[in-house]
Write a protein that binds this DNA or RNA. Structure first.
Lengths: 190, 190
DNA sequence: ACCTGAACACCGTTCAAGT
DNA sequence: ACCTGAACACCGTTCAAGT
């Protein structure tokens, strides 16, 4: 029985949101989960809206921990793309919340800056770099969204043999790897 | 004072959802808007969940009206990409609803089939076609999501001069046009 | 076949009251 | 400084009752 604090409230709320979705998070259920009166929560986090804001802030803070790894330019760009992809997929409900609140640009700012830095080091600058950054981020987002789609309805895959014979197409994970590598290579060639 | 029917209920619900978001649609507000008792709605649409399902179904039906235009292969592929992009952006709240319900693959099936058909006519088949279809759709989705992001917080654009000097980068619309043209051309080259 | 009001269980939030 | 229960306005849904 840990004592109540803003942090544990946010912790438990985050878990509940990622398990059942935002609309399933009620202040009363959260209070029950915490073993506390509903109104105690209000003292620590203000209200429901402020609580959701706290989840968003935590996610944004987490994005600032992105560190490129690898020695070559393409390895470093690829590592950024992979990390963003992984984070977007890890907490989709909170990401949706960030989106609804119009804070997605803020969320992606660190990744954007990291990509721009690596491109600059590779000699790609100006509008060419701007285009490259967008291309990579847009693709990462498209995959993060669509992979969830295809996974959740396995019967209706985005690519069925009914459409092009050929047997099993590669899974979303391999497709992401291949497409991102291709894109990064193309971007580095100018 | 039109008589109540399933269709007008769905019409008004759709308008309210796109204006204020799903969470702002309450059965009671909808009833007030329709000038009718709350419980009347239940007779026509079942319940709130079934009503949201009806919005999703309407959106999916709308996607079946996609018709490629143009004579060359790249013009026809581009027209499909543009149409999907436009529809995704026209009703973002309903699209989010489609996504939450795991019906996005169903939503995109017509577009996917249309793309595959055009590629086939251009001599691109099998896994190569599967990859091309995914690439185009993922990019369209990434743009549809991110354009809304960048538009809603103009102060925090995805590309600031602070990052690469150069003055104003091209807007999202031009970037989408350019990126999609580039991608389609690349895909057609194999 | 269609519409209604009453009723129930739930919700977010405020506030006065406790320690 | 922190927690509580009572109270208020709202919500989705059911149901018996009307026409």
């Amino acid at each position: 029985m840990t004592t109540l604090s803003r942090d544990v409230v946010v912790d438990v709320a985050l878990r509940m949101v990622e398990e059942d979705g935002v609309e399933q998070l009620s202040m009363r259920k959260l209070a029950a989960e915490l073993g506390v009166a509903v109104t105690s929560i209000y003292w620590h986090v203000g209200n429901r809206d402020a609580l959701l804001d706290a989840l968003v802030e935590r996610e944004i803070a987490d994005m600032h921990t992105i560190r490129p790894t690898g020695k070559t330019a393409d390895a470093r760009l690829l590592s950024i793309a992979r990390t963003v992809h992984k984070r977007l997929r890890a907490r989709p409900h909170v990401i949706a919340l960030v989106n609804e609140r119009g804070l997605a640009p803020v969320l992606l700012l660190p990744a954007q800056a990291a990509l721009a830095r690596e491109l600059d080091a590779a000699g790609i600058k100006g509008s060419e770099a701007a285009f490259a950054v967008r291309s990579i981020l847009y693709q990462v987002i498209g995959y993060a969204v669509l992979e969830r789609w295809t996974e959740r309805s396995p019967a209706k895959q985005m690519s069925g043999e009914d459409l092009w014979g050929q047997g099993e197409p590669p899974g979303p994970a391999e497709t992401f790897e291949f497409a991102t590598k291709t894109l990064v290579a193309a971007v580095l060639l100018g």
